[in-house]
Amino acid sequence: MIEVRNLVKRYDDYLAVDDISFDIEEGKIYGFLGPNGAGKSTTLNMMTGCLSSTEGTIKIMGHDIYEEPKEAKKYIGYLPELPPIYPDMTAREYLKFVAQLKHIPKKEIDGHVEEVMKKARIDHVADRQMKQLSKGYRQRCGIAQAIVGYPKIIILDEPTVGLDPLQMVEIREWIKELAQEHTIILSSHILTEISAICDRVIIINKGKLYADDTIENLDHMLSKTNRLSLTVVAREANVRSLLKDSPFGSSFEINPSEEKNAVDVSIDFEKEEDLRAEVFMYFAKAGYPIIKMNYDKKSLEEIFSSITQQGEK
């Protein structure tokens, strides 16, 4: 659907986007992940034709965004970082205006706008000026604008930034609903958001592409070191001497626990196998009861930071 090849954006001597290539396929939710200032918005602005590229090509359904902008932009709905709303307009007037810009036939505009407002759940505030609406509703108006005309691809730049947790959940749910009919590209610097919604992640940092993979693969690729967390009723010194002679390797950490007379222990295994039973029996033999045991994989946070650090080396 979208084909990005060797995309570069240079401002004077600052390289905002550095040779990025990727493909977007139909029917999936893509997450654009990266810290602030990584080049996410710049890339999305180029993909929507709001900004020129220094080098490289962007094709949308086979149409080059710069050479055939009219054809290419038909397939795209875009919500930039700040929702592009006119504060003195009402939501209804605004969406009608957007519908006109998107060349929706005059007869269909009223019906279409009503339908979009229902989907966006803004129909009950449709006749209030948007400057009187809460940030959550303004964001909804912004997304509603992107889905006017039901384009195949919807690009959302940081759609949940600045919202309260409840609004965030609502917007995420809505994005999932939208994904049933549209291909969605969403940028965020919040990992939990990406892992909760997206099928595929594109990680960008300092203008470079670091990874373009499914969440499972990324997870798998980097979770070779498995970590087991335990809470053991024992003294720190005892646990330390016990683990030193253990067959589980020497990579462990001991911290004071919230539990009475206990310590928190975390052991890193190099092999990717489940050793919970062995660990339990080992501690039981020594007479130290394990009262809590957790098998945690690396979080996306850790994956992200290790990917970006690897890249910097």
């Binding site: 929507t48 709001c50 009219k70 929702p83 592009p84 504060p87």
Partner: peptide, 13 residues
Amino acid sequence: KLNTDKLLFSTAV
């Protein structure tokens, strides 16, 4: 200022 120029550009005006 309102960022609405992006709306105009992304809708091919």
